[in-house]
Design a protein around this nucleic acid. Structure first.
Length: 648
RNA sequence: GCCAACGUAGCUCAAUCGGAAGAGCGGCUGAUUUGUAAUCAGCAGGUUGGGGGUUCAAGUCCCUUCGUUGGCUCCA
């Protein structure tokens, strides 16, 4: 019986049933077969050695293809698991899960009472090298669930048994696949390379603890992280990139540039912004405020501490108190606000609202406090006190779509000047949700429809919504590729209900509005951390804490330099003079290291002509120009919040 | 909170086997008056995160505690 293979170029080829991708590759050329990692068959990963059963679309995966790493990193994870088993004894090693991740792979392993440290990694790497050298063939086979459970029980792999049982429970799975290399067999969906000798370049990067299924009630396993590439140069480039990225880490750069400090003894998780960091924050807020007002928001300011009864009504008491700070006076309980919404609702309720007032959009740079466990604090990215650029849109049900779309557009507008990559996620009903499921469904669909209407790419994050409603989140990557949530758009029918807020409709009846909670920076602290890493401290001029450093060459130029600074400050620029008794070169070098956008060097020539000699931090020396001209151009650059120097 | 690693001057890092706590940068003082990435000299700076223990002797070994880092969890 023949089958028909359709290649990417549209050509078709006939094969016997049971032909393997490797055979097909060999048919085309031997070189191709050597370079192939696997195949894609009808959009499914397919091992090179796995027989084809039916006619199909067929494509080989070569080293340049984006799918290639899935094959060799999966195999890498198995090789690592096998190495650990050899080193620590098959009886003692219980495997959990070992997936591929963005730049590598990991495996969660229960090693009984053995505690791995990073010093153990070279030993494991050496064993892995052996396995690679042995070039063990990797064989795929399927088993009915009952036999699979027996096999895994025999191999003393309780986590695998649990995984199989869950597959049956959740998906009604009847057959599961295994991969075998030498004496090592592992439950795995695949795909894999045809033999262990085909992987080449890898490095184990770290060990850490990880709970079985990510649940801290379960046992903590040991996770070994590794990275692997098909080319040596790629591995080296990746490792160098990580090294480079560490230098951009905002926790190093921020304090080094004098932006902020965190005193973990006295104020853990509560950053102290120094004057330069505060300048930046203020610029961000100024920018945000302008845009909000353009977009029809009105600004409010609500209390930091409010009575517990408010938080009971809002539902925070029941759903969020683990994250809240409390305080008591005159036998009354108060809570420090973890969110701004109840305050905004009180603002809404202060006077009757007509349908003509809707949508009502109010915003606040509200400082919120949330308790976070000590182990998760992370520079500016995860803190216990932060300022949200928080707003609530009160609208009718009919206006939901249009308003959500408005917010999506608004996010784009706010992120635009920064020019970074972000990703949207739709989060659905969590376990500890409030309210009725039907309303949740309506809200979730409304968000989904809005995303579709804006043709946005997004992924769905089941069960990750807020307790009062589903949400769209925006994630931005830090220098090391870790993602942090920034903007969030949340739909909420619950709080309007619980607070009994109303508007008067055209028919003079009372109706309940819907609330859209939304933040764009999310946390201004976190957003600033992202910016520090994004720009590696070389901020666009409008954000830079010091925009211009005026450097007099000798003492006799100091007065003129000061007058230049006065002129600049008069126009609202952040300028400083460096009048220390140091060499010109020294001052230039320091300004350069501080990534100050403009250095104005002034000596005899400039002083005589009312000029300044402009040097950019990109090391470009522009020569002397009139101070007036410099101010004129700088004004333009800053006014438009340009991402690049106008002089370049 | 849990698992692992790490805590030496403001910063970056030395200190051999357990045997006298050091350097560079930065800071201060003085000299130098400099034209596009570091002028020279001198000085100050430490309970080696805290507490306890072993030892003739502890930065170094052990215990404990606090903190940081990498993860897990939660989330902006």
């Amino acid at each position: 019986m023949g089958i028909e293979i359709k290649l990417p170029d549209g050509s078709k080829k006939q094969y016997e049933k049971g032909a393997r991708p490797l055979d097909i590759a060999m048919d085309i050329s031997e070189g191709l077969a050597k370079r192939a990692f696997g195949a894609i068959v009808n959009d499914e990963y397919w091992d090179l050695g796995r027989p084809l059963e039916t006619s199909c679309d067929f494509r080989l995966v070569l080293d340049k293809d984006s799918e290639a790493p899935v094959f060799f990193r999966h195999t890498m994870a198995h090789i690592m698991a096998q190495a650990v088993m050899r080193l620590y004894g098959e009886d003692r090693v219980k495997l959990a899960i070992g997936p591929t991740i963005e730049n590598g792979f990991y495996y969660d392993i229960d090693l009984d009472d053995v505690r791995l440290t990073e010093e153990d990694l070279p030993k494991i790497e050496a064993e892995m090298e052996k396995i690679i050298k042995e070039d063990l063939p990797i064989e795929r086979f399927e088993l009915p669930v009952s036999e699979a459970v027996i096999l895994m029980n025999n191999q003393l792999q309780p986590y695998k048994v649990e995984l199989i049982e869950d597959l049956v429970k959740d998906y009604g799975t009847e057959f599961v696949t295994f991969y075998r290399q030498g004496d090592f067999t592992d439950l795995c969906r695949g795909p894999h390379l045809p033999s262990t000798g085909k992987v080449k370049f890898f490095k184990l990067t770290s060990v850490s603890g990880a709970y079985w299924r990510g649940d801290e009630k379960n046992k903590m396993l040991q996770r070994i992280y590794g990275t692997a590439f098909s080319k040596k140069a790629d591995l080296e480039e990746y490792l160098a990139k990580i090294e480079e990225a560490r230098k951009r880490d905002h926790r190093k750069l921020g304090p080094a540039l004098g932006l902020f400090t965190i005193n973990y003894d006295y104020a853990p998780g509560m950053p102290i912004f120094l004057p330069k960091g505060t300048d930046m924050l203020n610029e961000l807020l100024k920018f945000s405020r302008e845009k909000h007002i353009e977009d029809g928001y009105r600004e409010v300011s609500t209390p930091q501490i409010m009575s517990d009864s408010l938080w009971r009504t809002s539902g925070h008491w029941d759903h969020y108190s683990d994250n809240m700070y409390f305080t008591e006076k005159e036998e009354q309980q108060f809570a420090v606000k973890p969110m701004n919404c109840p305050g905004h609702i009180l603002a809404y309720k202060s006077s009757p609202v007509s349908y003509r007032d809707l949508p009502m959009k109010i915003f606040e740079f509200g400082k919120v406090h949330r308790y976070e466990r000590s182990g998760v604090l992370h520079g500016l990215f995860r803190v216990r006190g932060f300022v949200q650029d928080d707003a609530h849109v009160f609208c009718t049900r009919e206006q939901i779509q249009q308003e959500v779309i408005g917010v999506i557009d608004f996010v784009k507008k706010i992120y635009e000047p920064f020019d970074f990559q972000y990703r949207a996620e739709l989060s659905t009903r969590p376990e500890n949700f409030m309210g009725e499921i039907e309303l949740w469904d309506i809200a979730t669909e409304a968000l989904r429809d809005s995303l579709k209407a804006k043709k946005m790419d997004y992924i769905v994050n089941e069960g990750d919504g807020a307790f009062y409603g589903p949400k769209i989140d925006y994630h931005i990557k830090d220098s090391l590729g870790r993602e942090w949530q920034c903007a969030t758009i949340q739909l909420d029918f619950m709080m309007p209900e619980r607070f009994g807020i109303k508007y008067i409709g055209p028919d003079n009846n009372e109706y309940q509005p819907v609330m859209i909670h939304r933040a764009i920076f999310g946390s201004t602290e976190r957003f600033m951390g992202i910016l520090i890493e994004h720009y590696a401290g070389a901020f666009p001029t409008w954000l830079a804490p010091v925009q211009v450093k005026v450097i007099p060459i000798a003492d006799r130029h100091t007065d003129y330099a000061r007058s230049v600074v006065v002129s600049l400050r008069g126009k609202g620029f952040r300028a400083e003079v460096d009048d220390r008794q140091k060499s010109t070169n020294y001052k230039i070098r320091e300004a350069q290291l501080n990534k100050i956008p403009y250095m104005l060097i002034v000596g005899d020539r400039e002083m005589q002509n009312g000029q300044v000699s402009v040097r950019l931090r990109s090391e470009k020396d522009l020569g002397s120009i009139d101070l007036e001209e410099f101010i004129h151009k700088l004004t333009e650059e800053v006014k438009d919040r340009k991402g690049k120097s106008i002089f370049e």
